[in-house]
């Protein structure tokens, strides 16, 4: 733990920017979906729960990106791939079935338009970043 926190190689360089974006998205998705759970849950339970789930997945992905090692690498790949599938599937469903997804301000609505399309852009950038860092992650294990 101390060794990794002293070296912190993956949190250097462009990866820092990615992790910062993920941190911001985690904060935005979790806070907003929790407020929606408190104030509007009955109006769109499925959409709001999905939004909350995406916030939790963002949190795990942020931590996995920031940590060294093979396991963190696999966790990051898994969570980020899940996000990509989520934003594509739920994004498409939200446009096809507006009655089930009435809220524009859930994370995956309309491919993440309520969050400046970051939910669509981040998984793609994240997977590209992970692919480029593959050797580095393995080394740190």
């Amino acid at each position: 733990m101390t060794e990794t926190s002293v070296r912190r190689p993956k949190t250097s360089g462009p990866g820092r920017t990615l992790i910062a974006f993920y941190g911001v998205m985690t904060l935005a998705a979790l806070v907003r979906s929790i407020v929606q759970i408190i104030s509007d849950f009955g109006a769109a339970p499925l959409a709001i729960l999905l939004s909350f789930l995406s916030g939790v997945v963002y949190l795990v992905a942020t931590i996995a990106l920031a940590r060294p090692g093979r396991r963190a690498y696999r966790t990051a790949i898994g969570t980020i791939a899940f996000e990509l599938v989520g934003v594509l599937v739920v994004g498409a469903l939200s446009l096809a079935l507006p009655a089930v997804f009435p809220f524009r301000y859930t994370v995956w609505w309309g491919f993440g338009i309520g969050y400046l399309l970051l939910p669509l852009a981040l998984p793609v950038l994240g997977l590209l970043f992970l692919r480029s860092q593959r050797a580095r992650f393995a080394q740190e294990a």
């Binding site: 912190r8 250097s12 360089g13 820092r16 920017t17 910062a20 974006f21 911001v24």
Partner: peptide, 17 residues
């Protein structure tokens, strides 16, 4: 974060913030 690692990428992170 910018002060714990003084690199160009920290400055980009500040911008994102």
């Amino acid at each position: 974060w910018a002060l714990t690692e003084r690199t160009r990428w920290s400055v980009v992170v500040v911008g994102v913030g």
